[in-house]
Amino acid sequence: MINKKTNTLLALIFTIVIAIFTSLAARADGMVVDKVYHPYVVANEQSFEWRLMSSQTSAENVLAQRIGYGQSLLEDLAVEFFIIGERDETGDFKLQATEIEARWMLTEQGQYWADWGVLFEFEKQRNSDRYEATTGLIFEKEFNKNSLTLNFFAIREWGNDIQNEWELEFRAQYRYRYLPELQPSIEFYTGEDFVGLGPGFMGVHRFEGQKQLKWEAGFITEVSHKGKNHTLRFAVEYEF
């Protein structure tokens, strides 16, 4: 955990970096709709996670799934390993990539005006020379039973089989913590030429000890282009 001055300095540095990256935007290659990350880490926690993203346009149907194992290494640091499968252009579903992800909780929940975290990801495509590194800021602010979560990610893609470029993604979720099992939300995603908006929900069911099952889903519609472009996202996470 960091102190107040370092926290502020770090946030300001990110502000400047994000502002610089804004001018470096390029065309997005991947699926923008994925998951809105929260900045919190709980100590001594392990998890298995399954995510599904199904995107439909009038021209194609893209399906991506990922399975991950995660563990908190410190009170404020968690890592997760993923294997990612995607349906390719021939319609076959294949193992496509592996990824390591780290979340660092910068501030104690509720200590400051808002809660902050940082995400780091590194992804390697399996059968091609393509790499992707992501870093960005996670923000969450509580208003009584409501939570506003914002993610701003800068992504660098490189390799012999891909054009080297910077990409940017912004994700937002406004959630009402109605019941543990049902927390409806509105989600918003942008990634260069994609702007999507739609309803979602998340929930949690607790078993004994640290064991709990979390689920979340969203149905996101592209709003800046004409034509069909919907994405269904779904995730289940078992924590223990």
Binding site: L12, T15, A114
Partner: peptide, 18 residues
Amino acid sequence: IYSTLSQLFCAIVFIASI
């Protein structure tokens, strides 16, 4: 839209930091 959101986010980060 994207650019406006980016700038809005930057503004939120800055104001919140202070």
